[in-house]
Design a protein around this nucleic acid. Sequence first.
RNA 1: GGGCCCGUAGCCUAGUUUGGACAAGGCGCCGGCCUUCGGAGCCGGAGACCCUGGGUUCAAAUCCCAGCGGGCCCGCCA
Length: 649
Amino acid sequence: MVSTNPFGEFRSECEKLLRNAVNRLFPEVSLPKTVLEIPPSIELGELASSLCFELSKRIGEKPRSLAEKIAAEISSTPFTLVESVEAAGAGYVNFHVNLEKLASLTFESAEELDEDYGFVKAEAPLKIIVEHTSVNPLHPIHIGQARNPILGDSLAQILRKRGHTVSTHYYVDDVGRQTAIIAYGYEKLGRPKPEGKPDHFIGLIYTITNCIIEIERLKKEIKKAEELSLREDLAQLRRQLDDWVSVAAELREKHRNLFDKLLDEARKDENPEQAVNELNRRYEEGEETAKRLIREVADQCLEGFRKTFERVGIRFDSWDWESDFVWKSHVRKTLEKLKSTPYVFQSAGVLEFDAEKVADDFELKPKLGLRKDYEIPSLTLMRADGTTLYTTRDIAYSIWKLEKAEKVINVIGMEQTLAQLQLKLALYALGYGEQAENLVHFAYNLVTLPGYKMASRKGRYIAFDQVLDEAVEKAYAEVSKRSPHLSEEEKRAIAEFVGVGAVKYSLVEVDPAKPVVFTWERVLNFERNSAPYIQYTHARACSIMRKAARKPEKPDYKLLAQPVEHEIILMISRFPEIFIEAAENLKPNLIAEHANLLADKFNTFYNSLPVIKAQPPELSDARLSLVNATRIVLRNALTLIGVKAPEKM
RNA sequence: GGGCCCGUAGCCUAGUUUGGACAAGGCGCCGGCCUUCGGAGCCGGAGACCCUGGGUUCAAAUCCCAGCGGGCCCGCCA
């Protein structure tokens, strides 16, 4: 017997038994929704129902006595996976599973389905686009941004295994002032060949250029404020200037040549800020020299990103350049169309989108979970100089994505919630209301550093690459200590997947809605509740299988009578349900959690019970099946969160 | 000022969507394990008014209301 969802079979049986029993006993009562839950303790059974509490109100009988009647009624009918039913507590109906049958079904299914065990297919597979990461090509990916590709890639992997056709997209945001700034600096330096990893080199030029321009800009604004004696503005501007001046000092300290050269060159320009804006405008217009320059810079930066992605095993199916949507008129046409709706107005020379009015006219506030009295701010669509803003371009891009897929998931930080809302409302205004419902903003919370605020524009960040390096280095030290006999090459290879795995796990393990405070301690954890711990447990299970060097020929599953064995059988049988929940609710952290719990139980098992030498042979075989199924689930779970499952380490 | 997110042992987290039985792990702390298959491990112990106050309910960490604390957003940045 093979089942894609062994625990689900048990659950369905319990539901059916419960429903039939209640129908027979109380034909006049409509059944409350029968949700079965997992009891707090394993002694209470594997599934339980609290429907008697609800039923008691309708029937006017104590929950406990109802539970007893129902349990007795169910017990008079035949079972398959169910072992027994009983009334418990104040009125619960508890179901105990027939462990021998569940073990047999679970282990045989796991072995048979192997690399597909747990991956229950969706009834209606969809074409899904997962857009994730989309870090601007300005500087290396920092640790705050790194949560995005880790979550996004895991989501994509989970949805693929769920049977959907998933395409991962990277939106290259090469339009806008920021890319113009880096390109400006890059050109001033005479388009240098990158020293070291290109994204880090680009990042350095970006920070210095941005810093110089900001200082110039602030100085001018301060002068203006002085003339108009705007006291409050002045104080604030001066604070900002102080901050940038200290950034400049830090930068010049570390990179004197580059800094001084850029400063000299920038000073040759009457107004660097204006030059940047000019470049931005020319790029949007598709002017050739601007195109060549900015694409060259962006390409170099992306080349660096690709190296990082390769290292962490993340690939994109499509690289979508924002500028293409501008040049191919997608943006202009969207804007024209939007202008013809009653939701766009002029204000102080710029084009505004009235998101509030759309929400009202289409009565969308309750649907979008907004309060009636909340007034949605309007969105600026176009600058006075005719160039567009990020969200405007994103509207055009979103339409394109929604035309290519039935569902679009945008993995974007929660700080962009408002912009994503405005974007969605623009889709309604444009008549894409139906498609807008298929647009999901997967919002995750920020990664913060204790002590100071990360600011990529100020060059204050910890690069993802650096975190990976540290993790791999620590892993190397650990491997060298634990397995000195291994060759240098083997040690390096192990250190790589251990270190990378640890970092990925630390970012995927936490509920995406919760903020993560970055600490080295968290990321460099190789002990319990970490990728290395699960990897180690997997390698251990593999090792037992290797040593046994045989297939379980005649397992007798009823001999698996130890509590820990009981728990492991349950966890393996439940993996498909966990997977479904993770896929449907977009919660990769559930997978990490389940793998970790299984690893915990397996290690307890490992330390207390022999496998290969267990007697009689039927027990040894049954345990071997358990080890093998554990190995399969750990590996499949790790695959979903993008962590390598090694056979040795 | 308005909106969104977060608040669970000293620290980090699970559980909150879908209310159910004595709130579950990890780190750290204390005490044990050279138990045959891999010690990145195992066993035991101490440690929680689930931010506060109301409300709904047979039942609230979970739902509702009002606060408090922290973060984010409200830009002709992205």
